[in-house]
Amino acid sequence: MKSLEDLKKMREKALKKVEMRDVNKKYRVVVGMATCGIAAGARPVLNKLIEELGNNDYPCIVTQTGCIGLCAYEPIVEVFNQEDQTKTTYVHVTPEKAVSILQNHILKDRILTEFTIDSYQK
């Protein structure tokens, strides 16, 4: 049962967290949430990303965007490295792949080349 009491507890927890972590996160994870993305299954992907971020501490924030213009490759997840300003585009992402992206790319800086758009276009 979720009650408004939980919200107060979560607020205190979140305040402690804010003090601990650095303000600028290294990565920005962007999910395409236009009609094409949602139709292709972006909802469970975004849901999984938020759940993972709620349970674990990752050096990234998750945001949404509209149509990226590559509708046939949706669901698309783009990972922006804020330090060296590079972008990695993951295509046909599933919730399982999304977790793998967080655990490898975000945590260990290991890009999963087999899921990126470059490997699909070859």
């Binding site: 919200l7 979560m10 979140a14 804010v18 759940e51 971020l53 709620g54």
Partner: peptide, 12 residues
Amino acid sequence: EVNIDEPDILLW
């Protein structure tokens, strides 16, 4: 002062 788009708050 806590943001509403914190992951655990969104899930709640």
